[in-house]
Amino acid sequence: MLQPIIEIDGVSKSFGALEVLKDLSFNVAPGEKLALIGPSGSGKTTILRILMTLETINGGTIKVDGEQLWHREHEGGLIPADERHLHKMRAKIGMVFQLFNLFPHKTVLENVTLAPILTKGAGREDAKRSAMTLLEMVGMAEKADAKPAQLSGGQKQRVAIARALALQPKIMLFDEVTSALDPELVEEVLNVMRRLAEETDMTMLLVTHEMSFAHDFADRVLFFDGGRIVEEGPPDDIFTQPKEERTQAFLKKIIAAGQRI
C-alpha cells in the first residue's frame, strides 16, 4: 500500500470538559476521496479544523505527507510545532467552509489571487491568469470583477473553491459546503466538486449531509458518532448494507427526512 498522505493516530480533543474526539485513528491514501458522515455534533468539523490547524489537539499525533503536523521532531522526541512549521505544513492543505468566508472588500478575482501573490510570490499577471482559469472551471469567470455581496450563495461557494484551489494544495477539506445554500443552488456546487474529483488527483476529505453525493463521490465513507468512527467502508457497503446499529439508525433518519442515498 502507498504511504498514507494523512495519518491520524490516537488523536483526542476536548473543548473544556467536553471530549469531542476520543482516541481517533485513521489514514487517508494519496488521491483518496473520503466522505465523513454522522449526526451533528459528532466531531466531523473538528477533525477538519484540526487538519487545517484551526484547532489544536490534546493528545495523539497527525502526520501529513510524511511529516508531523502538530509536532516537530527534536532530539528523538516530539515537541509542539512552532508557527514556522505550521506555516510550512499549511501549504499542503486547503479548506472550503460552510459559510464561504470570502473577503467582502475584495473582488472575486482578488479573492482568488490574494494568497498566491502573498504566499507564493506569484507575479500579479500570472496570478490573474491562473485565477481566471480556475474561475472558468467553476463557472464564475464572468463575475471576476463583482464583489461577494453581489453573488448568490452558490456563486460565493464556487469562488471559495477556486480560492482554495489557487494555492494548489495536495489535500482539500470541504466542510458541509452546500448546507448553507438554498436547495436550488446546491447542485451547481456539487457539479464543481464532481469535476474536481474526476479531473484531479487531489486528496479530498468531505463532510456532508448529502448522502447521495457522498455515495457517488467517495472512495470510502467514515461514519462518525460521539467523536469516534463507528463504521467505515466503501460507499456501497455503508449506504446499502451498514453493519452497525447506529449507522443503520442514522441512515434511516436521513431517508425519513426525504433524502435519497
Binding site: I93, F97, N101, L114
Partner: peptide, 16 residues
Amino acid sequence: KEQYEACTALNLTGWQ
C-alpha cells in the same frame, strides 16, 4: 473570526 480562519486556511502570515 471566520475572516481570520480563512486567512489561516490560505496560509497568510499574521501581518499579511
